[in-house]
């Protein structure tokens, strides 16, 4: 086939696909299922309304959702082949989380630090957050596959951070641990697990 023939074929196909951002609605059912899973199986924490308005418990949602939003924005920029993503906003979230944990370390009496750090639910947290993140992460991959990233590993990592952030925000509706020592450590670790898997999957799923 001559290149001119190919061009003639391509020009006859006038239907362009919608850009990847227009496929983000896939997140809605995915997050809805995760929400339903938490509320129906684990159950919301009994004092949810109070927890959402007091600083330390609410920061779990704020940090997780900030991570979700900033990682998603960066991943969307990478759907353009020439796109570059600034990572410093994500670093700001990490720094804010570490500052919060450091502050908790200093204000927690030394004999209580160990208990605050280990909590009572670290294993369920490490299990539940990746599970709750799975569908939103898959939805993000499905949406951003329509893009044309030239940095699939980084895009995969950003999708993992966004998906992990959404899973953590959902899980926090159930979790009663309020010490930043606990949640920065264990939420952070759970999100990193999701991110590691997504980073490995990025080059496979986002190929084009």
């Amino acid at each position: 086939m001559k290149t001119d023939d190919l061009i003639r074929i391509l020009a006859e196909d006038s239907a362009a696909d919608p850009p990847p951002a227009r496929r983000l609605w896939l997140l809605v059912p995915a997050v809805a299922v995760s929400l339903a899973a938490v509320l129906l199986t684990l159950g919301p924490r009994p004092d949810l309304a109070g927890a959402l308005t007091s600083f330390l418990p609410a920061m779990r949602h704020v940090l997780s959702l900030a991570l979700f939003a900033l990682a998603l924005a960066a991943a969307l920029r990478l759907t353009r082949p020439e796109g570059r993503a600034a990572l410093w906003p994500l670093a700001l979230v990490a720094v804010a989380a570490l500052v919060l944990a450091l502050w908790a370390w200093m204000t927690t009496p030394p004999e209580a630090r160990g208990m605050a750090l280990m909590g009572k639910s670290s294993s369920i947290c490490l299990f539940a957050i990746p599970v709750l993140s799975a569908l939103p992460t898959a939805a993000l991959f499905a949406a951003l596959r329509a893009g044309a990233t030239t940095a699939p590993r980084l895009a995969g990592a950003l999708i993992g951070l966004a998906g992990g952030g959404s899973g953590a925000a959902v899980y926090a509706l159930h979790c009663t641990e309020v010490s930043p020592l606990f949640y920065v450590t264990w939420y952070g670790l759970a999100i990193l697990i999701v991110t590691a898997v997504s980073t490995l999957l990025g080059p496979r799923i986002l190929r084009w």
Partner: peptide, 26 residues
């Protein structure tokens, strides 16, 4: 021809207010 097919298949990733050349080069 592979590049042209890719330009075609991914033309929805061009932002209409962005320059085309860097997009094609990438």
């Amino acid at each position: 021809q592979e590049v042209l097919l890719a330009v075609h298949a991914k033309r929805h990733t061009w932002r209409q207010d962005a320059p085309v050349r860097p997009w094609v080069y990438a």
